[in-house]
Nucleic acid binder design. Sequence first.
DNA 1: GCTACCCTAACACAACTGTGCTATAAAAGT
DNA 2: ACTTTTATAGCACAGTTGTGTTAGGGTAGC
Lengths: 208, 208
Amino acid sequence: MPKVVDPAERRRELVEAVLRVMRRDGLEQASVRNVAREAGLSMGSLRHYFASQSELMVFAFRTVIDRIESRLAALEPEPDPTRRAQRLLAELLPLDDERRAENEVWLAFNSRAMVDPALRALRDEGYDALRAGCQAMVTDLSAAGLAPTDVRTEAERLHALLDGLAVHAAMRPDIHTAESLTAAIARHLDALAIERSARDAAEGEDPA
Amino acid sequence: MPKVVDPAERRRELVEAVLRVMRRDGLEQASVRNVAREAGLSMGSLRHYFASQSELMVFAFRTVIDRIESRLAALEPEPDPTRRAQRLLAELLPLDDERRAENEVWLAFNSRAMVDPALRALRDEGYDALRAGCQAMVTDLSAAGLAPTDVRTEAERLHALLDGLAVHAAMRPDIHTAESLTAAIARHLDALAIERSARDAAEGEDPA
DNA sequence: GCTACCCTAACACAACTGTGCTATAAAAGT
DNA sequence: ACTTTTATAGCACAGTTGTGTTAGGGTAGC
């Protein structure tokens, strides 16, 4: 009976099982037994694809990261920096069920990474990528005169706002609807532009 | 030998043991055995003070919440809304080792509350309190002409920024120093004031 | 004195964990 | 046709978990 499915496909199925269990019962319930049962396999089979639980978790986390990154990369090019930022941020916020699920497992992985060294490297990778993305967005906006020139501080602020909204959406999905999340982000982008104009005007006055 | 210390004191010691274990080894290591060993007691003794692990965790979480709230309440009154907001936010951010520790256990409790119903109520309580605090700050700033009039959106933005910064500080304490955190918050308060001025000016022009 | 009570300790139990090992059947390679 | 590799299943083992129960030692009230 073996060899009926592609090994890579099996691994993907197992990752899906991990994510399902994590969402339904919490990260600590994602034991090798529970995951194997969820996937309809014996735990001996699971161990054939992943030698250890840590390996399974790392692969699952990596899969989630790759999925998010490829989704961002697949976005059609958008020359206008504001609209580009809006689309990127909309892709990162948990606005629909699929991304809500993704957000939950992302947060679970992140919290385990606080203690598990094997996951820490992946968490840092995701963190750095998001940080770089925020920095790129602010840089483009700033170049277009739509954000203050202090890119570093503004990128940190945007990044923290984004992650904070994601955490809040996971904690209270009833309060933080897709509308309120997008409104908060839109307001922030708007505020960045206003701030830039005001600072430019102040600079034009002061030294003159 | 029993009865040498106040039972309430014992409970406090046990909570401290919980927090130490949680910070050192992670939340999932805070088993009744590990906590009892950390406190230098047998697990039979621990169970005399807390009938179940859930009870212990709830009490520990409650203690952390109370500690933060009483520290905020102990702040001397500050009439200037900007300075008051700065002080409140400085008290909530993990700027020193003590509050870094507090922040870590806070996040750990929050992540477990995603799955543990007993902790969820406490998490929601903490969330609501912080949300109300942000709303109060923005309301005062807005009344003083130092923040936009859309209190609801701005409170959500401030709240998310605050929690996002706390998460980032826990993840990357090397990157997010006390200086960068306070700078981000200061910039945000500054931006709120600028935004208000600009919107007021725009409104004065438009309908005229 | 003594009785009642609080605290502490220690053990038992069932459930769960990750991991190693073995057996077997199907496929692939020759 | 035969051998080797791959995939699956199942079990054993040692460790940890939460919780219950039992017993004993120390203090306080009478």
